[in-house]
Design a protein around this nucleic acid. Structure first.
Lengths: 340, 340
DNA sequence: CTGAAAGCGCTTACAG
DNA sequence: CTGAAAGCGCTTACAG
């Protein structure tokens, strides 16, 4: 890189002042340091004229702050993550922070690597959608006083700020809606992952089934091979359980794949089977019939995540009392569960 | 931030060596500097033992390199951008680079701000989906020898690397398909933006219409108010032009909104009107009938973008000969244009 | 009110 | 083969 950028030294030399003075003025400490308004104005005008902007690397090296937040998602190509990313980015931007993001694709090794990489680059805070097995790494971040907020799921074995939704209740309410519509054979399509949000959704389903004294129909798609297995496993599952009159998909990609199967098999929705999905998106809204969905309050989540992170960031350390917040999701009723 | 991290100085002190030696070994220059294998091994072992990792800010300050690429999209929440982001991230990662991303939301001022922000943070290269009016900023980057690759659209007034698809041809072929199916009144729904990719798609449409001696039916949705105007404008457009027998949507969000309108008005696809969309995605695949779509080769684009950027990055300067590559898109035939 | 100087954690000519 | 020293561009006690 060419060393052609203007530095503070260039300014101080040009104006016959010291670096200290320039730095104070640039950082808005002119008054505090009782620098004359004249001098401050002259400096500011010159800075503007030559288009000087500070080197963040140098500043970061001495202050230890970079105004950057590391954001670790499962996969930025997934609409749930890309939408919340968009909102978090906006919130961060409004507060003077930038986002560096990366995807784990569900791999713990990748997640560990990303956290270390972020640390080496001096990010100020971390927003993490954790993979299983990330406990030690997160604990260490907290011990080093680096602000962390988990989202979407948490790690039960360790203490940490967390923002998500009340998954158990959301799934319970969703299934209750089906039961109230007279459904007797409600199936749940989920994954075999032990992520907390998935386990809670499973609990919500089981709670309702038990409460109404219904039969359980659960299909666990292997998380690792979800692409390959979903279509065939689901098709077989439907064949084996012809009495099923309604299906809940526990997360967005399961719903998309499942609907493809149902369309292919020409299963009438909701006449033959009612359908309900966790996580809303365009594809579900546009589907015919439109699919009833549990909508997460993405905007509120994004805001809470950033707000929470900012508290610790301002404080300069990790608050010992962890913040564990579960927002309510909303069930959006559409034709896939209504016209039965 | 606590100064509790281990530095090179700590290592050199502990091992009784100089910072220089440590640095050389760490940077794989041990052989080149003819440092004894013994010493190198001892250092590496110690580094591993104490878990030292270099401070990238400091390194960046002196080398001028940060191994970071700034990635500017229109909106990361848009599936087109989030998918290519996911692929670019992967490619970058494989080459030792990290991505910092941000969205412009189509605002030039925001784009300018982002570029400056990236520069201040010392990103090594830029991948930009440019807004209109960004010419000066891009030109300046190139003059400062900062590698830039534009994608999705380019800026005709300036020279720059660019990777996209052959939009004119893709739209021409798409419309030709409709005409070959016997459609006589083909409509194009597009925006009024002057972005090159949109203009080219328009050209492709016009070319086919002219060639076949058909009537033009073009609806321009104001880019700024696309959310509010799309539904009502499109509905009115359909009413005013009842002879329309097929519709091309020039980009993904137009298709999603337009399909909502058509479903609401209970227009039979493809019996009454055939439908075709630019940019493929889940919602279109799942729609009933499945929507014929122009699919961009996202993976190839991502690879070409990174490869191109790496060339300049390795070279350490901007190559004067600019690389302007347009890939071919593929028309994915589905029921929305087939069963007429 | 303002400046000289140290230091953040690295890399890299230069010297031996 | 290895080290002393300068320097990247900032911030910030400390001193006056």
């Amino acid at each position: 890189m060419k060393r052609n950028r203007i530095s503070i030294k260039d300014i101080s030399k040009a104006l016959g002042l010291s670096n200290t003075t320039i730095s104070f003025i640039l950082n808005g400490k002119a008054e505090e340091m009782r620098i004359s308004a004249q001098v401050a104005e002259r400096v500011l005008a010159y800075v503007k004229e030559v288009g000087y902007t500070p080197n963040y690397l140098a500043r970061g090296l001495v202050t230890g702050k970079t105004n950057t937040i590391g954001f670790i998602v499962e996969n930025i190509g997934n609409p749930f993550f890309s939408q919340i990313a968009s909102l978090i980015e906006e919130q961060a931007y409004n507060n003077g922070y930038k986002i560096i993001y990366s995807s784990t694709n569900g791999q713990t090794e990748k997640a560990v690597e990303l956290i270390r990489m972020f640390r080496d680059r001096g990010v100020d805070g971390y927003i993490i959608c954790p993979t299983e097995g990330l406990e030690d790494e997160i604990k260490q971040l907290r011990e080093e006083n680096r602000p962390v907020v988990l989202f979407d799921r948490y790690l039960p074995k360790i203490d940490s700020h967390y923002i998500g939704i009340n998954n158990e209740n959301a799934m319970y309410e969703a299934c209750r809606h089906l039961a109230n519509k007279g459904k007797k054979h409600i199936a749940l399509i989920t994954t075999d992952s032990q992520q907390t949000q998935m386990l809670s959704r499973l609990e919500g389903y089981k709670k309702l089934i038990k409460e109404r004294n219904l039969n359980e129909y659960i299909l666990y798609i292997p998380y690792r091979e979800r692409k390959e297995r979903l279509l065939s496993d689901f098709e077989e599952f439907l064949k084996k359980n012809p009495m099923i009159d309604s299906v809940c998909f526990a997360t967005n990609y399961l719903a998309v794949g499942g609907l493809e199967v149902m369309r292919h098999r020409k299963i009438k929705i909701p006449t033959k089977i009612s359908v309900l999905a966790f996580d809303d998106n365009e594809a579900l809204r546009l589907f015919q019939p439109a699919i009833t969905a549990v909508e997460q309050p993405l905007e509120d989540m994004a805001k809470l995540i950033i707000d929470r992170l900012l508290v610790d960031l301002k404080l300069g350390k990790v608050t010992d009392k962890t913040f564990h917040k579960e927002l309510s999701a909303q069930l959006i009723l559409r034709d896939s569960t209504e016209k039965a």
